[in-house]
Design a protein around this nucleic acid. Structure first.
Lengths: 325, 325
DNA sequence: AAGAAATATGAAAGCGCTTTCATTTCATTT
DNA sequence: AAATGAAATGAAAGCGCTTTCATATTTCTT
């Protein structure tokens, strides 16, 4: 491991100059810069991150909290964040919230202790007020979620239109008896989807046959679909607030020999990569999670590290027709 | 942010002493320690990681490379690693290999540049020789994989018995015509599973009806199952080298109205959390990925940071009977 | 109780950078 | 050509810890 001093010596300049060409912040004469670059190359010098952090009071590290690292959403989310950060020579520390509020809090505390420069939160249990509070301790960035006191720190998705789109599709297919297993009332994305659905129903002069609140897990989809099958008059179509619940619903239908989509149509939300491999394959509303996560990280880079990325801050839903509806 | 000096001053000791009580390495008189702890508490002092790293020449950071962060295996693997590290007040940086060899290499280089103290590699394209080579640059830890020159740096799983178990179960169910979609020949875990299967067949005096090499993706399961269905004389059971391929196979069967398990029995490997929600639910061999990842991280902690965890270094397969076979 | 051995603590150097401030060099103007 | 202002560079002071070495204190031995 060579140090900055060795590079400086070899290039015949001071440490300060090497530091300057490295950071790119201050200007250095063309010729000097070349000499330094050459020295860096021949010594294959790599700056010491710890020293950098200590001197500059930045860690170049971003914390990423997922409510449950083992969730199917986590992959694309982490992937999108990681890609953007790596390109900018920063990195992410992961911390899982172990699927509980206290776990999420611990994860956040851990990362703040670790002195990350910012946080990307993909949580499930934290209220928007809590996010705002954390934001006072360390800059918080989120996607598909609002929080008070954010200063353009979230990447949005038009959940309302997405919900509307799902129901509209069902309506277009001739369904009139429609049930909804919506996501948690505490989450604004879930509520927006729900509100959108409602609007589509109202516009058609219809009311929901059945409605219940799920928690976005497969198990929850299983449970609520079981209730729906027990209903006296079954709906002909069910809109589940996310793919995971739809997978649970599909599983239940298959177990009970209820034919999808003939007996009951199922539509999900998110278009996770499993959607195309369920039986039957899942019709769903696409949410470009990877891209949104990538945008979130870029927004963070712009805000915290003065980068200059173009970032799309609002994403739109898209219907993906497969065979379940 | 208070510093160690402030703590020292408040406790009426030197910085060195504070450092000592913090690290727990050297001994400090009971009474002194209490005074220091109290000062730490009242100042709510948190040590600066960068300074710590710079002074000690350790980053307390572990790099975690997954061939594809978006893979279903990644979650439990990352979760297991993260849990162990966090408990030990260390952390993991993630880097995805973007599902390619060059990507995996870039991820490794990035992390080494980032000066991680060690690497946990969950790669798909790197040969065991390459792992050994990387190990010369930075300590490498792997699970369910061997590499040359490791010094007890891997957590093993008995894939051979697992493969045997899968076939044995099929045999016990009365199947005689059995096909295998094995995993990549380049991966020792896949090969062990295959060898185990073969042994079970031989012991029964039978030969495989059909055999082909898949690449552990859903798509690969789809492709090979399609070929199998086109076979003149179909097998009555298929053993897929992992759950992902089995999910693909199930999907194909359902699309072609081939009844599972009546027409064809399907058995997978890994017992990912989706296995219980496929249609029909997947009979498979359980591989305790989270626990293995956790053990890998503990092994790392013991080796690199002189921790003293008990670690189980060999894990065993377990048959999980569901409905697909 | 004195000396030796063991234990506890402090002083200070240094880890490898960034950054401020002063100085030198260069280009421009008169 | 001298004066001026701008641009480029260097010297050196930290950033907040760990760790070595020396010193002070306690405990043990006889």
């Amino acid at each position: 491991m060579s140090t900055i001093s060795e590079v400086a010596k070899k290039a015949g300049v001071s440490n300060a100059t090497v530091s300057r060409v490295l950071s790119g912040a201050a200007r250095v004469r063309e010729e000097t810069r070349n000499r330094v670059m050459e020295a860096i190359d021949t010594l294959s010098y790599v700056p010491n991150q710890a020293a950098r952090s200590l001197a500059s009071n930045k860690t170049f590290t971003v914390g990423l909290v997922a409510s449950n690292i083992d969730n199917i959403y986590y992959g694309p989310a982490a992937g999108g964040v990681e890609k953007a950060l790596r390109k900018a020579d920063r990195h992410a520390i992961i911390a899982s919230g172990n699927d509980s509020l206290s776990g999420e809090r611990e994860a956040v505390d851990f990362l703040i202790k670790r002195q990350v420069d910012a946080l990307v939160l993909v949580t499930r249990y934290m209220s928007e007020e809590e996010l705002a509070e954390i934001n006072r301790r360390c800059p918080v960035f989120v996607m598909n979620q609002h929080f008070d006191g954010d200063h353009g720190r979230n990447i949005a998705f038009d959940n309302f239109s997405g919900g509307k789109m799902a129901i509209q599709y069902l309506l277009d297919q001739g369904h009139r008896r429609i049930a909804i297993v919506r996501g948690p009332k505490s989450k604004s994305d879930a509520s927006q989807r729900y509100l959108g659905s409602l609007q589509a129903m109202e516009a058609a002069g219809l009311a929901l046959t059945y409605e219940v609140e799920g928690d976005f897990t497969i198990e929850s989809g299983v449970k609520h679909m079981q209730s729906i099958l027990r209903l006296g008059e079954r709906p002909t179509a069910v809109f589940l607030g996310n793919d995971l619940m739809a997978i649970g619903a599909l599983h239940v239908c298959n177990e009970h020999k209820v034919k999808v989509p003939e007996d009951i149509a199922i539509i999900g939300f998110d278009d996770t990569y499993l959607a195309r491999y369920t039986s039957p394959s899942l019709t769903t509303i696409q949410l470009p999670l990877f891209d949104m996560a990538n945008a979130t990280a870029k927004l963070l880079l712009n805000t915290i590290y003065d980068c200059q990325y173009d970032v799309q801050t609002l994403f739109s839903p898209k219907l993906v027709c497969r065979k379940s509806a």
